[in-house]
Computed example of a mutant assay.
Amino acid sequence: MKHVYRFSLPGWAVPQQEEFYALMARRGLFVEKRGFLLTRFSKGDPAELLYRLDAAPSRGQPPEEERLQFYESCGWHFVCKADYFHLYCAEKGAGELHTDAAWQNETLLPVRKSLRDELIGAGVQVVFWLLLFFLNFWVNGGIRGDLTVSETTVLFLAQCGFVLPALLILLILLKLFTSALAMHGFTNYLRSVRGEKITRLSLRGFLFCEYGTAMFYAAVFLALICTLILLTPRTVPMGQEPSSQVLLRLEQLEPNATVLQGTGSLGQESGQTEVVDVPLASLQLHNLQLSDTNGNTPWLDQHYIQLSGPLDPVLVAQSMAKYLSLGDPLPVKEPLPAGIDCAFLDDSRTDLIEVCLASGNRILHIQYLGSASDAQTVMALASQALTENSKSGV
């Protein structure tokens, strides 16, 4: 026996499902099994059939044997379970499955309660994700530098750009919208059961809206996955020019180290460095702890962000300096290197220099542990990397 599959209509769309299955039967396709995503049809000779959905005692529970026998005696045959309901069919001309509107309304109330709970759950999810985001950054901000709400938000947007949070918010709002639509549609169905006059879309209009919403939901989800993939860092050879990477090399800060050996905290060899080369705003992490022939352990950690969207580079640089630094970087008031808009510096610790510079929409944060270079050298090399990158257009 040949089978075909069609996308399942939502469980709450009772009259639309009944009409859709009858239409399929006239085309020679008969329901065998209804799944969450797909409904399986068997092929046969076209027939005029009636389909009706009967509320299940609980979601997914099979019908009682007594009810099956009673419906069979009335000409209605059990087809399959259908989410909140059981699906029955009969030949055209058979008496209606339900003749007592008050009793039918009573059996449908648990379904309405389930839909209401789903709507409340979707609303709770929206609040939960918003709270989780702010709590996560507030806690980390408090530990790493007591960030304000504005600094927390701007740093988040600088790291991941506007696309990722916009897609996440859109995905959550779509879930909330579909839950509200289900609640509204089923409430209208209950009103029709009670004999009230309602206006509803034709089957074609309903299918257009339902499949259109599903395709939009899938497109947003796919865009979210693609965005996450694009934000994944990539590896390039250390031998590239600093201006093309917007990164300092440890050899530039430790000119007396004749041999560098070991691996970084991410497991990469010293000849490689982690670089983000994607067009979206991104956060770059570079963490190498290497040793020279004298047993010294110079250490370099860099975070690079290229901003996209209407973000204030000075505020982002200030937020990065507070969030990433071990100390308390202060604004540099003396004349800044050419091309640098602002800088934050902390060189109060022995052999530890922390600096954050902004040039246009590019920001670089440096943590350097070593004795071969001073703060002015670190700032000069970082400034050169940022400004050369600007000239090259990379």
Rank of each mutant, 00 (worst) to 15 (best):
R234M: 08
L176C: 08
R362F: 09
A380T: 15
I172S: 05
Q268P: 01
M183T: 10
S319A: 15
F137D: 01
T199K: 12
G339V: 08
S243N: 06
V139S: 06
P57Y: 13
G142E: 07
F7L: 13
N105M: 13
F20S: 00
T350N: 09
L231G: 00
A321M: 06
S243M: 09
T232N: 13
G205T: 11
A158T: 04
L364S: 00
G145F: 08
A358Y: 05
E196D: 13
S348I: 05
V236K: 10
T350K: 12
V127D: 01
V332D: 02
E269N: 12
A219V: 12
P337E: 01
G142H: 09
L307F: 08
F177Y: 15
L49C: 04
P57G: 00
L167A: 02
Q268C: 04
E32K: 15
D146Q: 15
A358E: 00
S42C: 12
T227C: 14
P237K: 10
A343W: 06
H365G: 00
Q376K: 15
P313F: 11
S73G: 11
L147R: 02
I340E: 02
R194Y: 05
S319W: 05
Q69E: 12
V246K: 04
G264Q: 07
L266H: 13
L288C: 04
E251N: 08
S150I: 15
K175N: 14
Q284S: 09
Q69K: 14
V111F: 07
L135P: 02
P63Q: 07
G327F: 13
L115D: 00
Y368Q: 01
S319H: 05
E354S: 04
H365R: 04
Q245F: 09
L168A: 05
T99N: 11
A257W: 08
R234I: 06
Y211Q: 06
L147C: 03
Q284G: 02
P331W: 13
S359H: 06
I169K: 06
D301R: 15
P237T: 11
A101Y: 09
L109H: 07
G360W: 13
F206R: 01
G360Y: 08
F206V: 02
D341C: 03
T99R: 15
L315C: 05
S243R: 10
G271F: 08
F156D: 01
R249I: 00
G161I: 04
A382H: 03
E64C: 05
L23E: 14
V79K: 03
I172K: 11
K333A: 14
A47C: 09
Q61P: 03
I340K: 04
G93S: 10
S202T: 14
L357I: 07
A122E: 06
